[in-house]
Amino acid sequence: MKSNFVMFLQRKTALLRNLARALFVAVMFGMSSTAMADQPQSAAATPRSLEADVQSLRKDVLELNKDLSALEEELLFPANTQVAVFLSLDVGAFFELDAVQVRLDNKEVANYLYTEREIAALNRGGVHRVFLGNVITGKHELVAFFTGKGPHGRDYKRGANLSFEKGQGAKYLELRISDRQSAQQPEFTVKEWE
């Protein structure tokens, strides 16, 4: 004869098994993998509303940043004096960039040491704005020094320069490092953008 405790456990276990079977059916046949993938969106009520609040905040922050950037540029770098210097890499088989120094009218305005991650970003097509500043209208000279590893892994330092005329509009200059296949050497140029 079974004890009451055992009978209680039997009933409880039968209940659990039924629950388990229901869950099993749900897991095996009910939910598709897509539904599983969407679970985070419909998990609990609190995270969902929190997520919505976070998205809304992100939007407002971006909007605010946009307004601030516009104001900052107008205040600090108005177009009639603005000059920006960018750096780009094309291929880079003959030169591994470490750092760049930019001199404008014989004054050092930027000195940037690149991380591996940033070099990878340049190699993938990113263009780094090395300097943003102001100059008066008229003639100016830009000189850039690039340091890194040249062909055969040797220390390598090269320069490039450009004389340019600053007009009323913003001036964009691009320091470009590319490979000169014919000479098996890197090439450093400065391009003036209109």
Partner: peptide, 28 residues
């Protein structure tokens, strides 16, 4: 080929994993 330098600038931050700055620069 990058034909607008500000686009290349945003790409730089994007590839470097700084998505917030990339997004800010793109939107501006």
């Amino acid at each position: 080929a990058v034909r607008d330098l500000p686009y290349g600038d945003a790409l730089f931050y994007f590839y470097a994993g700084d998505y917030e700055t990339a997004l800010e620069r793109l939107q501006f």
